[in-house]
């Protein structure tokens, strides 16, 4: 269990993390979501006491990270797979970490085996591919057989097989009752792995919700209609008591009515349809909607009204 209370971090003028309060519970995968620069990595560094909070605190099973005896046996973290001395062999890298926390050396061989690096254990990690480096970082996180695991964008730059492997690993760790906290800026990725979501933007908490709730609220299904007789179509739908939304480039959107019913209605009134298609709003869109107000680095700036999505987040 990780408890974050009133956590803030200021770098000079920049408030990177702004009064975050949330908990990460055991037995599930908690996704930590936010656009680039939202403060995910900063929050995770503060969890490990690498960066000192400007305000607030983090508790790991009720204790400060610094006060944990042999912290690798409580928390295993992969924050940056490149955070190691490339001149040291994979085996020696893990060995020095194990020794510092009183973990038996035999455990090094075990985790190398788990991540599939046994064959290159004696090789210097400098020559490792991105995927191998990531696996070595994960081996380091698993080393102390900790109850809490933390991964900062673990799938970044991995091939589909590697992504698949990490996804299953996180799920199985959670299934064993461990606390798994994983950051990402891809909603689609989280939809596949996370049971719970913590969403932040510009350092602030935007949502703290179960994945199921998020999907229920946000996976809106609707029907898109296009017709050369748009005005008449609209009138017809209106008379039938159906709410229509005019979307861009001459399309209409209808919520909560089956496409069959709409097609038949149009046929009855002899209306020509150029399109009649059931649509599913993606979670990615919902996520973008949610964070739109707080995206720092817009490709093209068109800030929509963020915060629109009512969530349980904000002030717990």
């Amino acid at each position: 269990m990780i408890e974050v209370a009133g956590l803030s971090k200021r770098y000079g003028q920049k408030l990177a993390v702004d009064d975050l309060t949330f908990q990460v519970r055991p037995g599930i995968v908690t996704g930590f979501l936010g656009p680039n620069g939202a403060g995910k990595s900063t929050t995770m560094r503060m969890m490990l006491d690498l960066d000192r909070p400007t305000a607030g605190a983090v508790r790991i099973d009720g204790k400060r990270y610094t006060d944990l005896k042999d912290p690798l046996t409580y928390v295993g973290a992969l924050l940056d797979a490149k955070a190691l001395h490339g001149g040291r062999s994979a085996y020696n890298h893990l060995l020095c970490l194990a020794q510092s926390n009183g973990i038996p050396a035999s455990r090094v061989g075990e985790v190398l085996d788990t991540v599939g690096l046994t064959a290159v254990a004696k090789k210097r990690s400098k020559g490792f591919s991105l995927g191998m480096g990531q696996r070595l970082g994960i081996a380091g996180a698993l080393l102390g057989d900790p109850q809490i695991l933390m991964f900062d964008e673990p799938v970044n730059g991995l091939d589909p097989e590697g992504i698949h492997w990490i996804r299953n690993l996180m799920k199985s760790l959670a299934a064993q009752g461990r606390t798994v906290f994983v950051s990402s800026h891809l909603m689609s990725e989280m939809a596949l792995t996370a049971d719970h979501l913590v969403v932040i933007g510009q350092g602030r908490l935007l949502a703290d919700t179960s994945m199921a709730d998020f999907i229920r609220t946000n996976s809106r299904s609707y029907v898109r209609l296009r017709s050369p007789q748009q005005e008449r179509l609209r009138d017809v739908l209106h008379q039938a008591g159906i709410t229509v939304v005019t979307a861009g480039n001459g399309t209409l959107e209808v919520d909560g009515v089956a496409s069959e019913q709409l097609g038949e209605l149009a046929a009855q009134h002899q209306l020509v349809l150029h399109e009649l298609s059931p649509q599913q709003a993606s979670l990615e869109e919902a996520f973008m909607q949610l964070t739109a107000g707080s995206v720092e680095y817009h490709a093209h700036s068109e800030p929509a009204s963020g915060q629109g999505w009512g969530s349980t987040g904000g002030e717990n």
């Binding site: 490990l48 690498l50 990270y65 912290p71 928390v75 940056d80 001395h85 926390n101």
Partner: peptide
């Protein structure tokens, strides 16, 4: 210095926070 230039320092301090 190699702890800093390689980034190992963060891994080291996570293992030994004192």
């Amino acid at each position: 210095g190699n702890e800093y230039s390689t980034g190992m320092i963060r891994t080291s301090l996570a293992a030994v926070p004192r």
